[in-house]
Design a binder for these strands. Sequence first.
DNA 1: ATTTTTCATGCCATCGATTGCACAATTTTC
DNA 2: GAAAATTGTGCAATCGATGGCATGAAAAAT
Lengths: 338, 338
Amino acid sequence: MIHLTRPSPTLKEVAARCGVSTATVSRVINRDRRISEETSKRVLQAVEDLGYSPNPFARGLKTNKSRTIGFIVPEFTNDFFMRIARGIESRLRQDGYTLVICNANENRNDEAARLDLLLDQGVDGVIVIPSSSRGAHLRAADARHVPLVLVDRVVEDYQTDAILVDNINGTYHAVEAALAKGHKRIGFIGGNMDLTSARERLAGYTRALEDYHIPFQDEYVFFGDFHQDSGYELMGQLLALAHPPECVFLSNVFMHLGAAKYLLEHQQAKRRVPELIGFDEMDFSSSLGFCTIMVRQPIEEIGKIAAETILDRIRGNHHPSRIQRLKTEIVQFDRKNK
Amino acid sequence: MIHLTRPSPTLKEVAARCGVSTATVSRVINRDRRISEETSKRVLQAVEDLGYSPNPFARGLKTNKSRTIGFIVPEFTNDFFMRIARGIESRLRQDGYTLVICNANENRNDEAARLDLLLDQGVDGVIVIPSSSRGAHLRAADARHVPLVLVDRVVEDYQTDAILVDNINGTYHAVEAALAKGHKRIGFIGGNMDLTSARERLAGYTRALEDYHIPFQDEYVFFGDFHQDSGYELMGQLLALAHPPECVFLSNVFMHLGAAKYLLEHQQAKRRVPELIGFDEMDFSSSLGFCTIMVRQPIEEIGKIAAETILDRIRGNHHPSRIQRLKTEIVQFDRKNK
DNA sequence: ATTTTTCATGCCATCGATTGCACAATTTTC
DNA sequence: GAAAATTGTGCAATCGATGGCATGAAAAAT
């Protein structure tokens, strides 16, 4: 096989082509303003002509920067995580950064391994949606002076920047709205209690009940794992109670999906179907009339802010670590079909 | 702020620590077997002690390899694509490669831009799920001698390795199974006809009708865009016909979701609900009794094979480009609840 | 006992871009 | 009009790892 194309041109060739030194070309490319307008133009023309683009390895070697950010998610096949990824990526792109997404398979070991890999690859910063509430292994980033920000959840044993939503108030307002509709018996299906987001949502629920003087009833509260099957399962358990709740809060969209599926499969004319409320859009559930109240998170915004936070750190801002809480919004649906 | 940690150790420091040259250390790290067992051990111990890991930039500069593969998907928030990503990533990890995933936003321009970015970043190979049937811009990879493999779809104007499923036979067998169940009127909701996968699925449908001497009826065939809304919409149109089909083939899982949603919302006791058949698992639809026949693709396997194909190319195999077609499997469900 | 081969390791040029320093040319200041 | 400041550019060291070539020692062949 004959290669008709030459290897990528280097700085030297660009320099030779327009009779300046490599230093000058480098400066033009890096927008060093000391270079005269005129030479600048000549150099850029040569860059264009040769189709030059800087060798990322050589550049990285000198600058120790890769213009690359790592993003560790618990799981690839999760719409919520990937929408955050989209938010991050589109913001980073504006600044010429590339995002490297890794899958932690929802376990701490893989998370640690991915982080090490990313650090070894020379990323300039790391964004993590932690898979558990432990985060000591994340200090590896500090050791290399690579900034790290958490998204959606925080960890106990490691303090750093974090972008979260206001889970407590989000849940509070949803439950409050359900109470306002006259519901007295409100069930709660929680997520993996190892995760701060799950714990905060429970806190919002209990606080709302307290404030409205509704007794907290153990039998109305179940804990799943944020996956669809647990929503299905636990909805069944709630409906099997002597006095099933009139309304059930689902802590995330996957459990909501499971719950909705349970309701569909077990719909009986005589029995009253509980309303479903919970975090995130469940288009299916709402158009079926199950979902009446949802807590909407600004998902892409979370990603955007995470990206901006990490860029800020990379650019050397050394203010103390900060937790940013984004507001949620309550959306109500009519209960059609019922 | 005082940094208590030192910068990462270099080869030189490791070499100094155990009294050998940097070349020796480098050889140990790269498993050059010329080095004696004994020195090897000493060096590895020092590597361990210092927590040394090679500078990726320096290494890349010399070797022109990054141990990084790019993956361009049309859209992040698509379970099918991300399952392929998972398959790719877990296979690449075995060989110590990292995957960089990019979002083409379902358009050719972004796809081209992402590819350029990846090439500029020095990836060793690129895997692409093309967003359209045109692929001339993908030649940019050839120009830099970076291997590129396509997944799920091929493009017209650029020939390279591709991993696909047998869309024609998959569809054929699904339709055949529906005919075997006694259905005569089988509708078809196709995807974006610009994509080869969509065209092949149509071909499987028409071929099955032909083989079984069922006249092809234009009014039973609609084309959507692989998104949920189009499935919803087109299912409505099919049901509005004077003689609606008894069975409808959905060309992907999102349109299937939309169709199922339409059925749920418009269920009427008097009207017979058509069976849904189509590509990929639609857990919801099947447990509701809508979905009776599905074409299962080996999704993670597609990713695995794509990864192996690109690794093979990176290792210098220059055989002519090849298209690998994976077999699909027909899964049938009972029609419960009806 | 030489000569040849094999083995283990070291020396150092190299990859391509960046950047501190030097220096010449030009402009500004007094 | 001389000194000082500014501007534009080049020189060359540098980042850290790799690998061709050289070398000396040990093993094998004659």
